[in-house]
Structures are given as C-alpha cells and as structure tokens.
C-alpha cells in the first residue's frame, strides 16, 4: 500500500506559509504604487527612490551597518579567544564560572542587559569621564557583550571537533605555537569564524531593545528609526528598506551555510 503523503505535505505547506507569507507580502507591497500599505494599485519602484532620498533613514542604516561590522569583528576575536580557553586549556581554576558567565548573555533578557549597561556607562562617565556621552561606542560595546557569547558557542563546537593531533603534528614538524595556530588551527576553524561573524553581524543589525537603552542623541540605529516611524503609520519606504535587508540577510545566510558545509567536508 502506498503511504498517503498529502497530510504531511499540507502541514509542511502551512508551516512554511506561516513563516514566509508575511515576508513575501512585505516584499510585494514594497513595489506597490499606492501610499496605503494594504491596497495594491500597481507596480512601482518609487518607494525605493524615495528611500534613497530619506537622509534620516539612510544615516540610521549606515550607523547600524558600521556598528554591526565592528561588533562582529570584535565578537569574533573575543569569542574565539574564549572558545580556545574552554576547549584547549582543560580544567583551569574558575573554568565553570567562566563558562557560566560567558553563556549567561544567551539567556539574559535584553531589557536587563540594556538597563544594566546603561547604568554602567552612566556611572563610568561620572567617575572616569569615559565613555563621553552615549552613541556609537556604547552601542558597539553593548552588542559585543552578548554577541561574543554566540560566537564562542559556534567556534567552540568547531574547535572541539578538530583532531588535536593535527596541531601536535605541526608542532612536531617544527612549527612554533603561533605558527601552528596561524597555519593549521585558523584555516580549519575559518568556516566557524565566518558564520560566527555573520551571526554577530545580524544580531547587532536587528537589535532594538539594548540599543534603545545605550543609544544617545544623534545615534539612532535602523531598528530604532523603523520602530518609531511605524508607530506614526507605516510608510512603504520601510517596506522597501525591509526588502533590501531581507535580501542581504538571505545572501549572508547562504554564504555562511555554504562555507560551513565546505568546512565539514574537509
């Protein structure tokens, strides 16, 4: 007897529809001519043109991208160091505590991270005069604190899969520890570094809560602009912007996926 497949396929279709129809609608309406978001009148790219004339939105987007890039880079460096310590240095004193503190931001509510960092920054400004005001620096620091935890998880998984004897072999063949790290370890964990970077980038790019706490005047990130403009009524420009972001994120996810798969094959 042939097994009937349509019940399963229906469930699957509903699942996908639930996840992706809203996004498809958003993309569709970004090409809508009407000012009203919910009424389709005809195809047009005028909202894209208007988007590129909207200085406030573009500035916010550029700020977000810069923060995301700096954050991702710092998070990869710190997260990799942390992962190295956990995987490579066995049971050092305070290992459990270190592990716990490292992964805490993964489960800590954003509101609490944001509030506590705000308090810290204010206190620091009063006592040592740095950071001077809040803006790019404070948002970046705030983002690094939680995204390095994600990077550490990704890199740690990769490192612990790696055959330890590869590094030992390199050392045995005369390579000093730094050289071993650069010539053997780094190339082998590179896929994890790349996906960690992309993950940290994305996390930073769409963070609204934490950024709202630690941002200052004149440092409005993209999610903050979108959120506040939506409250005053949605402009189709936002749809256009969202479409561009979806395209970029999709590309990034595809690249990360491919590089991870390649890494596993090696």
């Amino acid at each position: 007897m042939r097994r009937r497949r349509w019940p399963l396929l229906t469930v699957l279709a509903f699942g996908y529809a639930f996840l992706y129809v809203p996004i498809l609608l958003l993309i569709l309406y970004s090409f809508n001519e009407s000012r009203l978001v919910t009424v389709w009148t005809g195809f047009s790219t005028k909202w894209y043109v208007e988007l590129f004339r909207n200085k406030q939105l573009l500035d916010a987007a550029w700020l977000s991208v810069r923060i995301a890039a700096v954050n991702a880079t710092l998070a990869v460096v710190l997260g990799t160091l942390a992962a190295n310590a956990l995987v490579r240095h066995g049971t050092f004193r305070g290992r459990t505590g270190f592990e716990l503190l490292l992964t805490a931001p993964l489960v800590m509510p954003d509101v609490i991270i944001g509030l506590s960092l705000l308090l810290l920054f204010v206190a620091m400004q009063q006592t040592i005069g740095w950071p001077d005001g809040r803006g790019f620096t404070t948002i970046t620091i705030a983002h690094v604190t939680f995204s390095m935890a994600y990077v550490a998880v990704v890199v740690r998984a990769r490192l612990s899969q790696m055959d330890r004897s590869l590094e030992e072999a390199a050392m045995d063949l005369g390579a000093r520890p730094l050289r071993v790290y650069l010539a053997i370890t780094l190339p082998l964990i590179a896929p994890a570094l790349l996906s960690g970077w992309l993950l940290a980038f994305t996390l930073s790019l769409d963070d609204l809560v934490i950024a709202s706490f630690v941002a200052g005047p004149g440092s409005t990130t993209l999610p903050m602009v979108i959120y506040s403009s939506v409250r005053m009524g949605v402009s189709p420009q936002i749809n256009a912007l969202a479409t561009i972001i979806v395209a970029v994120v999709t590309l990034a996810v595809v690249i990360a996926g491919i590089s991870m798969r390649r890494g596993r094959g090696a």
Binding site: D163, S165, L166, E168, A169, A170, M171, D172, L173, G174, A175, R176, P177, I184, P187, L188, A266
Partner: peptide
C-alpha cells in the same frame, strides 16, 4: 616538540586536511 630532532607519525596520521 618543535625543537627536537625527532619526528613522529601519528596513529590518526594527522594529515592537514586543507
């Protein structure tokens, strides 16, 4: 290890995959 006049063949061979 990196300064010893000795080389080793590993059980897993430890060939560099890249």
């Amino acid at each position: 290890a990196y300064s010893r006049p000795v080389n080793m063949m590993f059980q897993s061979y430890a060939l560099f995959p890249h």
